[in-house]
Simulated assay, not measured.
Amino acid sequence: MKTIHSIAAACLTLSLLSCGGDKKTDSVPAASTETATSETSTANAYDPKRGIGKHENVDVSTFDPAMAAEGRKLAEVKCTSCHKPTEEKLVGPGWKGVTQRQTPEWIMNFISNPDPMIDVDPELQKQLELCLVRMPNQGLADNEARQILEYMREIDGAK
């Protein structure tokens, strides 16, 4: 009987100790000055015509149907669970008309790396309030982002 009590006491002690939590993971670190400065400089660098990112001059002077077809395939894998090619909202907004509302540079910067733009763009923040889901970074390569842009252009009537 003493053995059972000893084992029970040991188990109780271990369970109480394990419930204490690890202070390193339970605490929320304070924002450092470096992070705050970085976010401020990112907000200051935001250009509503091109967003934030490396895409500065996207040539859309001619329509490339083969590129649009590749963009459609990519979109079917990475985008259509949240976006429709119409104006209808699914999880995210529909794509119809997006190339008329935004510049090619803005679209490519956003779909390539949405987080920095969502953090500073007032229109994207309003969209987030409506959709309630932050657009995930799909890890698109530059050529994939360009193909999806060409597909969006096709949706909007580019020929």
Rank of each mutant, 00 (worst) to 15 (best):
M1G: 12
T3K: 10
I4C: 06
I7S: 06
I7R: 09
C11Q: 08
L12I: 14
T13P: 04
T13L: 15
L14H: 02
L16Y: 02
L16E: 01
L17K: 01
L17Q: 07
S18D: 10
C19S: 13
C19L: 15
G20M: 12
G20P: 01
G21E: 03
G21N: 04
G21I: 11
K23Y: 10
K24Q: 12
S27T: 14
S27N: 12
V28Q: 14
A30V: 15
A31H: 09
S32H: 01
T35D: 12
A36S: 13
T37Y: 07
T37N: 08
E39W: 03
S41M: 14
T42A: 14
N44V: 14
N44H: 13
A45G: 08
Y46W: 13
D47K: 10
P48H: 02
K49Q: 08
K49I: 10
R50N: 09
G51E: 06
I52N: 08
N57S: 09
N57P: 03
N57A: 12
D59T: 05
V60K: 05
S61N: 08
S61Y: 00
F63Y: 13
F63Q: 04
A66Q: 11
M67D: 00
M67I: 05
A69K: 12
A69P: 02
A69F: 10
A69R: 07
G71R: 00
G71W: 03
R72G: 04
R72Y: 11
L74Y: 00
L74C: 03
L74W: 01
A75S: 13
E76I: 04
V77K: 09
V77M: 08
T80R: 09
T80E: 09
K84S: 12
K84E: 11
E87T: 13
K89W: 11
K89T: 14
G92I: 11
P93Y: 07
G94K: 03
W95H: 07
W95V: 09
K96I: 08
Q100P: 00
Q100F: 11
Q100K: 15
Q100G: 15
R101K: 15
Q102D: 04
T103E: 05
P104K: 03
P104G: 03
P104S: 05
E105Y: 07
W106Q: 00
I107H: 01
M108A: 11
S112Q: 02
S112A: 14
N113W: 00
D115T: 14
D115C: 03
D115K: 14
M117I: 14
M117A: 10
I118T: 05
I118N: 00
D119E: 10
V120F: 01
D121Y: 02
P122R: 06
Q125W: 07
Q127N: 10
Q127M: 15
L128S: 00
L128Y: 02
E129G: 11
E129H: 05
L132D: 10
V133M: 04
M135T: 10
M135I: 07
P136M: 08
P136E: 01
P136I: 07
N137I: 05
N137D: 15
N137C: 09
Q138G: 05
G139A: 06
G139T: 01
G139I: 03
L140N: 02
L140V: 07
A141Q: 04
A141H: 06
A141W: 00
N143L: 03
Q147Y: 06
Q147V: 06
E150Q: 11
M152E: 01
R153N: 02
R153G: 01
G157R: 02
G157V: 08
K159I: 15
K159E: 12
